[in-house]
C-alpha cells in the first residue's frame, strides 16, 4: 500500500506535472484566470487522464507482446483523441449537467501534453496497472492543485500595480516561478511522511 501512496503523493507534490515537470503549461497559463474555470478544466483533466490510462494500459501490453512498441506514440494519441470525442458525445447525450460542467474543456485536452505525458511516463516507469492508475490520478490532482493555487495568485495579480516592463504574460510567468519555488519545499516530504 505504501508504494501506491508514495506514487500518489509524489505525483501530486514533489513531481507535480505543471510546476516540476512542465507538462500542461498551456492550460495552466491560459485557463487559470478564474477559479471556476480552473476547477472545471482540471476536473476534466483528472477524468481524461484516468480514462486514458485505463484504456492505453491493455493496448500497450498488446503492442509489447507483438513487438510493436514503435507504434506507441501514434496509437496512444489517436486513442486519446477518439476517447475524448466519444466521452464528449456520451456526456452530451446522457449526462447534460456533467457535460455542462466538464464538456467544454474536453476538446482542449486532446492535445494536452500532460495526458500523453502521463501515459508515456507510466510506461517508462514500468508501472503495473494499479500503479499507473494511481500515478495518473495523482498527476491530475496535482494539476488541479497547481491550477487552483495559481488562479488565486492571478486574481491577486489583477489588482497589483505591475511595473510596465513586466505587464501581461511576463509577470504571470514570474508568479508561476514563485509558486514553483514553494512546491520545491515539498522535496523529501513524501519519504518523510511515509518513513521511507
Amino acid at each position: 500500500m505504501t508504494v501506491y501512496l508514495q506514487i500518489l503523493m509524489t505525483a501530486i507534490l514533489t513531481g507535480n506535472f505543471v510546476l516540476c515537470k512542465f507538462l500542461g503549461i498551456c492550460p495552466f497559463l491560459g485557463v487559470s484566470k478564474k477559479l471556476n474555470t480552473a476547477v472545471g478544466m482540471s476536473a476534466a483533466v483528472v477524468f481524461v487522464m484516468a480514462l486514458a490510462t485505463a484504456v492505453t494500459y491493455p493496448i500497450n501490453t498488446m503492442l509489447v507482446k507483438n513487438n510493436l512498441e514503435y507504434l506507441q506514440t501514434i496509437v496512444f494519441i489517436l486513442v486519446i483523441a477518439a476517447l475524448v470525442q466519444l466521452v464528449e458525445i456520451i456526456l452530451k447525450k446522457f449526462m447534460p449537467p456533467l457535460y455542462n460542467a466538464l464538456g467544454i474543456y474536453l476538446p482542449l485536452i486532446t492535445t494536452n501534453c500532460a495526458v500523453l505525458g502521463v501515459v508515456l511516463l507510466n510506461i517508462t516507469e514500468n508501472y503495473n496497472f494499479a500503479q499507473s492508475m494511481f500515478n495518473s490520478v495523482g498527476a491530475g490532482l496535482g494539476f488541479m492543485l497547481a491550477m487552483v493555487i495559481f488562479s488565486g495568485v492571478r486574481s491577486r495579480l489583477e489588482s497589483c500595480d505591475v511595473p510596465k516592463f513586466l505587464q501581461g504574460l511576463p509577470i504571470v510567468l514570474i508568479a508561476a516561478s514563485i509558486v514553483s519555488v514553494s512546491f520545491m519545499g515539498f522535496t523529501g516530504i513524501v519519504e518523510g511522511i511515509l518513513g521511507l
Partner: peptide, 22 residues
C-alpha cells in the same frame, strides 16, 4: 542553481518574454 531547476525555467521565460515585448 535554482535557475536550472523548475522555478528558474518560469523565471527566465518571463524575463525573456518581457525583453521580447519591449
Amino acid at each position: 542553481t535554482i535557475l536550472i531547476m523548475a522555478p528558474g525555467g518560469f523565471f527566465t521565460f518571463g524575463i525573456l518574454m518581457a525583453c521580447a515585448n519591449k
